[in-house]
Design a protein around this nucleic acid. Structure first.
Lengths: 286, 286
DNA sequence: GTTCCGCATGAATCGATAG
DNA sequence: ACTATCGATTCATGCGGAA
């Protein structure tokens, strides 16, 4: 399967217009947070953030397939001792545009930077807001299953009588179970809390997220041959991962410097995928 | 030091009026979530939730000391496939009342409710919203320091190599310079993510806090002899913990059943504290 | 006294069916 | 059409009794 990696240099709001309606399966992005990445985006002030983002989210709504998903990585910053409310306001406004706010994943940054402030602790989490166009969307949950916890080893060794039948909880929680159903399982579905370490080796980009983050969402919401968009491409993590996972990708970036960097990355991945295919086809012909 | 545990039977909104202005150092509470605990609270509908809570938060603002803190445990439920927005709306409205939304801690519930759905995963986190009356509030960070885990040791060692080289001015964060200070410490400040399991063996209450949760905030925001309020006392975890930690406590509860239960608990703790003092004094006289 | 191991429990959500 | 109830789905934990 051939996959394309299409990267575009320019302002995200303008360049989105070049993308067809209902053509994207997944949008994963980490836009510049308010007042950060000043050098490249001019530093959007927290008070103007919603206003600035709404035209973009409208464009994203247009290009996303009805069964597609939009994952937005964002965190409000502290302004004069208080958490700013632009993220909450943004969610409320995006709902008015027609977005459904389906879920909020928490990205727990296990190795966040050490530090100390007199009135707060280190900030070790970020929001991953999931938006959809409709209640029914594509989700491939089996792709991201995790190993069952240690409890299972001992718990499932010996099953009592009540374990083998559906045993309704007495406290009226409405929770019944049949433990014997779990015997041959070694994997469980994950939760909406993601534990991933941040990568520090990507020093060229001030807001890079770890590869595993886009990877997880690409697995969960797309299949091979689907199309992934990152309208704030930055150093291109999402694009690179998507390409390696044989998803088509589209990236938009305003900074020529990043744009050039990603261009080279893409070529490298293309070469890698090419090699892989050769090996595959050689084996097949044997 | 004598501490008082004062519990009040009745509607929280009414009974708050009996509490003096600026008399409380810390409010820790977990109000009934929308549509839950119907038997005791009648189940507030998600659409009416903000309206229902605002008079209460106004009362809490009045009784809290200027240097005090309000910790609100809450989570929005799913309504027709979407996360409801009442929590966000509540924060915005509370700001209008004069509350500062200082911080949001994440409570990661390690043993969250099981289940499987086609469009979402298990919900494993709740919000712990921190509100204050002013930018300067009491916070005793040293009280909640945690032992440095192995990951931190190795992590910081690895970091140190790159960070020693790193030009502090380029990084702009100032960490590069100070990172070596962290290497010899065996205790670190925690982050704003708390990993705790719910106590599902509490037969008396379907939604009891784990004891460590109020304990952590009581340590962090109060000293011995301070006063802690829980306007939705429930099975009385907050009050019990506060009392044991030699903080004065005030609890309000609408259900006579819970009220009676907590009354007994309080007596037990009083007895326990008495014994402890006796032992202490006996040792002293020796 | 420790350690092991059995077992009830839960701030849930969805879809179908019924009023 | 819109609400109310009901069945089906599913993990990880801490308690308490046993070894």
């Amino acid at each position: 399967m051939e996959v394309s990696a299409n990267i575009i240099l320019g302002d995200c709001n303008e360049k989105l217009k070049e993308i067809e309606d209902n053509s994207i399966d997944l949008i994963v992005t980490s836009p510049p947070y308010a007042d950060s990445r000043k050098s490249t985006y001019g530093g959007i002030s927290p008070d103007k953030y919603v206003e600035w983002f709404l035209p973009i989210s409208r464009g994203l709504l247009r290009v996303l397939k009805p069964t597609g998903t939009f994952v937005l990585n964002i965190k409000e910053k502290v302004v004069s001792g208080e958490r700013h409310t632009y993220v909450m306001r943004l969610i409320l406004e995006m709902q008015k545009q027609g977005w459904l706010w389906t879920e909020e994943f928490i990205w727990h940054k296990k190795n966040c930077y050490p530090g100390k402030w007199s009135n707060r602790f280190r900030d070790a989490w970020e929001r991953l807001l999931q938006f959809n166009k409709q209640k029914k969307f594509n989700m491939y949950q089996e792709e991201v299953m995790v190993p069952t916890g240690d409890w299972a080893k001992t718990r499932l060794k010996n099953l009592s009588e009540t374990d083998k039948i559906r045993d309704t909880s007495r406290a009226g929680s409405g929770f019944g179970k049949n433990i014997s159903n779990w015997l041959d399982r070694d994997k469980a579905y994950p939760t909406n809390v993601l534990h991933l370490a941040t990568e520090c080796n990507n020093k060229n980009h001030s807001a890079a997220f770890p590869k595993v983050l886009p990877e997880w969402f690409i697995k969960l919401f797309t299949r091979e041959g689907d199309t992934v968009l990152d309208p704030f491409m930055g150093s291109g993590t999402t694009i690179e991962v998507a390409q390696k996972m044989r998803r088509n990708s589209v990236g938009i970036e305003i900074s020529p410097e990043y744009f050039g960097m990603v261009k080279n990355k893409i070529k490298a991945v293309e070469y890698y995928l090419c090699k892989e295919r050769e090996i595959y086809e050689t084996n097949k012909s044997k």
